[in-house]
Structures are given as structure tokens and as C-alpha cells.
């Protein structure tokens, strides 16, 4: 199917661009296989949810896309270049929160760090940097906190700042690692609405261990537990889920057997 898409792309300029391509990717840490033969294509404006148990390799997969983890075998392409070169296209919201709540940095400074790293050393942040930082803070609804020390915010608020920091680079791809872990349920809807808006501009991958967290907003779902079960659709069979979680899974779907999260 990948091949078909590629051929189509060549024939027709209007075809949606492939932003991420993983081909037969294997990752191992000290002889322990973490990711096994992963094949994945993601296209512009797609919103993919990846679910899987803790330790299933979800964070590792994101780090492969970011070039932070080197695969032992296989190929990774980010908009046609290597992950290290493609970092400028990728926005990343890490799983971990602050480990030092007393770190002397304000929300504003945190967001601006997203504008670094384009060889602009020795220079102060310019007008464009500041305007973009203001825009993304408005988008996530955190402008009023911009002078605050980040450690003084709640975890949910910190997450929103980290999302702003990832967006300030105008990424083509947004990677979110367990973004909902510390966001209250009422805020989750709001959060998905933000992502729904962002989908116009970028591809989004959201990983989570929490099956119920994947919402109606995602376009496609994959299951990951060392191996990736992905049918380029929003449907997952019970068999896939059971393979992923290595135990019988009680679904999950609201009324429709053998389908996950199709209708709410």
C-alpha cells in the first residue's frame, strides 16, 4: 500500500505529502529488542493515535523519529531527509514534566527556547520570535501566565506550555508523548479541540498507554507493543489489541463489537 501511495504521489502533485516514513525499523537496547520491524507512513494533516502498554516502545518510536535513538536496522525519513536533519520540521512534547520545580525560568523563556537552534547564536530573540511565542501562548490559553515561573504552574498548565514550545517552530509534524496524563477530563476536550485546529497545518502523532484517552478526534489508530499493528485506519481488531497487550482485552468500543472507538 505504501508503494501505491508513493506512485500516486509521483503521478499527481496534489496528492498529500508523506511526512514520516519508517521502513523495517528495528531498535534494540543492549540486545533487548524494543521495536521490531516497524513500517509506518504518515501523511500531512493526519492525526494518528498510537496506543500500547507501558514499556511497549512508544516513546522509543517517537525518539527514532526525532533522531534521538538510532535504529539498529532500517530506514527513517522525515520529509525526505534523515531525522537529525528533519528536526526543524518536528515539534515535540515530551512525556516527563519538570523534575525541578524551582528551576529559574519563566513560561515566556521556556516557549522562546523553541525558537533556538537555527544557527542564530550571539543574537537576541527578534520580533518574529516574540510574535510567534505570543501567538502560540494565546493558542493554548496561557498568555496570562507568561511571566510566571514554570514550576509554579499546575502540571496541566505546564503541559500546555510545552505544547506551545513545540508549536513555536511552526512544525510540520507534532509528536505528543502521553499528553493527557496530567490533564483533567474537562480540559481534555479543549485539548483535542486545539489539536483539531492544528491538524490543518501539520501531521500529529499522539502516543498513550491509556486506551480511553484516544478520542474521536484521531483519524487513525495503531497499536504498539514492540511490533506495530496498523491498518492505516481507525479500526483495530480485538486480535490486534490482544496481541498488543498480551492478554484478553475487554472492549472499549461503545456498542460496536470488534471495533475500537468508532462511534461515541
Amino acid at each position: 500500500m505504501n508503494l501505491d501511495n508513493k506512485n500516486q504521489k509521483n503521478k499527481n502533485q496534489e496528492t498529500i505529502i508523506e511526512v514520516i516514513n519508517l521502513k523495517n525499523v528495528w531498535v534494540d537496547y543492549d540486545d533487548i529488542v524494543v521495536l521490531e520491524d516497524i513500517n509506518l507512513s504518515i501523511y500531512q494533516h493526519e492525526f494518528l493515535g498510537i496506543i500500547g502498554p507501558n514499556g511497549g516502545g512508544k516513546t522509543t518510536l517517537l525518539k527514532v523519529v526525532l533522531g534521538l535513538v538510532q535504529p539498529s536496522k532500517g530506514e527513517v525519513n522525515i520529509l525526505g531527509v534523515k531525522p537529525e536533519e528533519g528536526r526543524g520540521y518536528v515539534g515535540y512534547v515530551p512525556q516527563h514534566c519538570l523534575f525541578d520545580r524551582g528551576f529559574p525560568i519563566s513560561v515566556w523563556e521556556v516557549v522562546l527556547t523553541g525558537r533556538l537552534g537555527k544557527g542564530k547564536y550571539y543574537k537576541a530573540y527578534n520580533k518574529v520570535d516574540k510574535q510567534k511565542a505570543q501567538d502560540v501562548l494565546d493558542l493554548v490559553g496561557m498568555s496570562e501566565f507568561k511571566g510566571k515561573q514554570i514550576g509554579k504552574l499546575s502540571e496541566g498548565q505546564q503541559k500546555r506550555v510545552f505544547i506551545a514550545r513545540a508549536l513555536v517552530t511552526d512544525p510540520k509534524i507534532l509528536l505528543l508523548d502521553e499528553p493527557l496524563a496530567s490533564i483533567d477530563t474537562p480540559l481534555q476536550t479543549e485539548f483535542y479541540e486545539i489539536l483539531d485546529k492544528l491538524k490543518e497545518k501539520m501531521a500529529i502523532i499522539l502516543v498513550t498507554h491509556d486506551l480511553s484517552a484516544v478520542s474521536v478526534y484521531v483519524d487513525k489508530i495503531a497499536c504498539l507493543n514492540r511490533r506495530l499493528f496498523y491498518h492505516n485506519s481507525k479500526e483495530i481488531s480485538v486480535k490486534d489489541l490482544e496481541e498488543t497487550y498480551r492478554c484478553p482485552v475487554d472492549l472499549i468500543a461503545h456498542g460496536i463489537p470488534h471495533r475500537v472507538l468508532k462511534k461515541h
Binding site: L68, Y92, F103, V110, T113, G114, L116, G117, K118, Y125
Partner: peptide
């Protein structure tokens, strides 16, 4: 600026380049 970013979040600093 770079030292601040590095001290605050080493991994993110790497990701932005």
C-alpha cells in the same frame, strides 16, 4: 540563551537543533 535551554531541558534543546 542556549545554556538556559540546555540546563532546563537537554533533550528538547537537542530536538530544536
Amino acid at each position: 540563551k542556549e545554556f538556559l535551554a540546555l540546563s532546563f531541558d537537554d533533550e528538547f534543546a537537542t530536538v530544536v537543533g
